[in-house]
């Protein structure tokens, strides 16, 4: 009985080890749903409109396709900027709604200029990390501007450097950024832009 138990344990452990030994790149499909639909603003919606400018990617161009390395696996994510942009478009609150600049006719409300500063994964010993850093420049009435940096950093145990767990960590890191942004945008919608850099 004990032998059987041990044999099953070893078999399971070997299976668990195999993905961890893989050196083939982990190809992520972050942007599963491209946000192409046009948002229509209903006349009864009293929320502040926040117009989202096209996203600017500040990472070096040749480094955007690969989102770091976890274990020995390179992490590939071709659509990472589109993924962040789609998440920002979906960022609505009690006091504000976000619309793409192409959907806002006429262009009224606050303008948000998003910039990706960092978006990568890494590992240290048996832990894996995911990092998303986004800067938002908010341009309010009379061109009053305010710039904020949002950091989403996640560190967790690395089970096997699998696509699913890496993707999950990146999503959590982005959610961390979005949570901070929502709080700030709610405040801005209620009280206006406070000049702060």
């Amino acid at each position: 009985m004990m032998r059987r138990f041990l044999a099953a344990g070893f078999a399971w452990a070997l299976l668990a080890l195999l993905p961890g030994c893989s050196t083939s790149p982990a190809e992520l499909n972050l942007c599963q749903r491209a946000n192409t639909e046009t948002k229509t603003v209903t006349s009864g919606d009293q929320r502040q409109t926040i117009v989202l400018a096209p996203i600017e990617d500040r990472r070096p161009e040749s480094m955007r396709q690969q989102l770091g390395v976890v274990g020995r696996r390179g992490v590939l994510g071709k659509d990472s900027a589109a993924w962040v942009e789609a998440a920002l478009i979906d960022l609505n609150g009690q006091n504000f709604r976000v619309v793409k600049s192409s959907d806002a006719q006429p262009l009224t409300g606050w303008l948000v200029k998003p910039r990706i500063l960092q978006l990568y994964t890494s590992s240290l010993n048996v832990a894996k990390m995911a990092t998303v850093v986004i800067e938002l420049e908010l341009v309010g009435p009379e061109n009053k501007t305010s710039t904020h940096v949002y950091n989403g950093r996640i560190a967790a145990a690395n089970w096997g450097s699998g696509e699913g767990e890496i993707e999950n960590s990146l999503r959590k890191a982005l959610q961390k950024c979005l949570k901070q942004m929502r709080t700030d945008l709610e405040l801005v919608s209620r009280e206006g832009v406070q000049t702060k850099t």
């Binding site: 500040r58 070096p60 480094m63 500063l117 960092q118 240290l124 010993n125 048996v126 832990a127 990390m129 850093v133 800067e135 940096v149 950091n151 950093r153 560190a155 967790a156 145990a157």
Partner: peptide, 28 residues
Amino acid sequence: SSVNTSRAKKAEAAADPVRNAMAGYDAN
């Protein structure tokens, strides 16, 4: 493994103030 994961998490969290202070710096 458990000890090392915990140490890595602590080290990463500790470095946050430095990384936040370097936002926008392109080391590459």
